[in-house]
Amino acid sequence: MDPFGIALTTLVLFVSFGFMVGVLFGFFGMGGSFLVTPALLVMGYPARVAVGSGMAFVFGTAVIATLKHHDLGQVDYKLGGLMIAGTTAGIEVGSLLVYRLEELGLASGVIGVTYVLLLGAIGSFVTRNALTNDGGGTSGSGPHDGADDEIDPDDIPDIAKEIQSYRIPPMLTIAGGIQVSLWMVLGVAFATGLLSGFLGVGGGFIRMPALFYLIGVPVPVAVGTDLFEIVFSGGFGAFTYGLNGGVDLSIVAPLLAGSALGARIGSAATNIVNEDDIKIYFGLMLLGGSVAVAFQQAGDYFGIEAFNTVGFALIVLSAFAVGGAVIYSTVATMRAQTSVYTTAVD
């Protein structure tokens, strides 16, 4: 039986895989193309279809996750719009750097090493920071700040306080009642776009921590605003690949059916799980990703196919482990809250 033009087992696989990616995407604001495109390549789809369908999937999942974060008041549209402008300029410059490196014959090696080091460095920094509790650590479990709520100054990381102290007009009021210079926001957006364009990745793993650590936006709002930006980058990417027939709806539709539910759960979980736990899971996900990408880069460099397979297996394993931990942490927090509620009623 081939509903929608694909085998039933493939359909079930796509829906389940989409669900797991959706949980991570809604929770962290990253991980779509990181997981889906390599999976489609492993399944034997041509690179154009794998990348294009991955982009379309990321676009659809970002729409759903952004709508859920919007319902929770966790999207700062003004900040998102500025981030889009700065990121777009950064991506252009980043891609120019890649062309320059290609002329020198260094692109593949430099980009690969930078990608692995950046994933590892951000992963280590975020995990260490959450464990030593610099910013966001006093929130505890329970409902988190929405975009319109004032943020506790103790929850703002030191680097963000430093950046907020440069009061170059015009000044903006953004999520959490934070006052920050327009030029600082555009500078951070440009830097994240530069890295994104240079590495050829969506950049959620760079933007989400940048919004929190460099600008001082509360973590759930950083995730929601990052996802809002991905709606536009993913939509543009899907359109570009769609022009050349790179988007296959028989792949995107079942993946999206699963991720729509997963993204709702992941997005809602940011409102339940402790902020430090979110950062620890995010950091562990990036550390797992850096080891996996290191294997894939080594596989490409030395021409060892087994390394690519090991790298992909590691990505899927770390994604499943972190996705499972997110769901477990959410259920445990909800059960603890129910227990407190029951005790209070009694």
């Binding site: 379309a56 676009f59 659809g60 999942t61 729409v63 759903i64 709508l67 859920k68 939509g235 899907a238 359109f239 570009t240 690949y241 769609g242 022009l243 050349n244 027939g245 988007v247 709806l249 995107v252 539709a253 999206l256 059916a257 729509a260 539910l261 709702r264």
Partner: peptide, 28 residues
């Protein structure tokens, strides 16, 4: 044209995303 086809594909994905959001929201 390919531009119209690509825009229709993006529109179809957007429509599916909104329908799923509303559907799962009602279920929730």
């Amino acid at each position: 044209s390919s531009a119209v086809q690509a825009a229709a594909l993006v529109g179809a994905v957007l429509l599916e995303a909104i329908v799923l959001h509303v559907g799962y929201g009602a279920l929730e």
